[in-house]
């Protein structure tokens, strides 16, 4: 009886603690949202008010007019979707090869891929920029897509997954006379669907929120991605906070939609644990 009472007490306390912390995590976003609903003169009024006196969507209308969000969304979407599809295919095939074939040079390649996690683009921005120039990829969306296709994380996710697939499955397909390409596309890729979806979601988020590549590759505002468009507000001498706050919220919307649609896959911890490298 006593222990049951204790349990109940512990449950109340821990739940309360959990939600206090959760609210602390939530608050910055809520504050951004509340502030974005304030008209410009209320934003900097003193003393500060938590809730807007005259909530208004003017800030949103203003940023929708000033920033060409549709254009930025489309650009970012093109980059994110194309890269994601190519990343999944490239990582799956590469992971499959690394898991199921045993050649010395493949092992060497595995180590090379490991090295890329250590020397990400951020570290070698200057020479990478020269490469982009040489390949004629400067100021093109292709310049964002192509370099981002290869990801060590994706390759390792698939490699780990395919290692768990029994070799007998492959052998029997081979005996049936299927060639390796057919085995991969018709047998292996379909059974790796959970990994593919997880990687696709991650890849999409990486590309949607990517900053470094667009920063060094793009110059034409017609090709701006959402993040670079935001940078043009944050970097200004006089930050236009009304514009910045509502634009930040707008930039979140697509990711939130993705999250709502794919929540099941994202929060399914079984799949994410596959990320273990």
């Amino acid at each position: 009886m006593n222990s049951k009472l204790n349990d109940k007490f512990a449950t109340t306390m821990l739940t309360a603690a959990l939600f206090i912390i959760a609210l602390m995590y939530l608050f910055p976003i809520v504050w951004l949202l509340l502030s974005s609903l304030k008209p410009g003169n209320e934003l900097f009024s003193y003393p500060l008010k938590i809730f807007p006196d005259n909530p208004t969507l003017d800030g949103y209308a203003y940023s929708w007019q000033t920033m060409e969000f549709i254009k930025y969304f489309i650009n970012t979407l093109i980059v994110a979707v194309v890269t994601t599809v190519l990343t999944v295919l490239a990582s799956a095939s590469c992971g499959f090869a690394l898991a199921k074939y045993n050649y010395k040079w493949l092992n060497a390649f595995l180590i090379c891929m490991l090295a890329t996690t250590m020397l990400p683009t951020e570290v070698i921005m200057n020479p990478t920029f020269s490469v982009i120039l040489n390949l004629n990829l400067y100021d093109s969306l292709a310049g964002l897509v192509i370099p981002s296709i290869s990801t060590a994380t994706g390759i390792f996710m698939f490699r780990q997954y395919f290692m768990t697939v029994p070799n007998d499955l492959l052998e029997s397909a081979r005996i049936d006379g299927a060639n390796e390409g057919k085995i991969f596309f018709q047998l292996m890729l379909p059974i790796a669907k959970p990994v593919a979806i997880t990687l696709a979601i991650f890849s999409f988020q990486w590309r949607w929120n990517d900053y470094i590549w667009p920063l060094i590759v793009l110059s034409d505002p017609n090709k701006y991605t959402v993040q670079i468009a935001l940078r043009s507000i944050v970097g200004a001498d006089n930050i236009d906070w009304v514009l910045l706050l509502s634009s930040s919220i707008i930039s979140l919307v697509p990711m939130i939609i993705i999250f709502i649609v794919f929540q099941r896959y994202i929060m399914d911890t079984g799949a994410t644990s596959g990320i273990k490298g």
Binding site: C94, Y103, L106, T128
Partner: peptide
């Protein structure tokens, strides 16, 4: 095997 890793290999060399 080479075909399967080709894309990543090229990207690795280039970028």
């Amino acid at each position: 095997a080479f075909i399967f890793v080709a894309a990543n290999l090229v990207l690795f060399l280039l970028f």
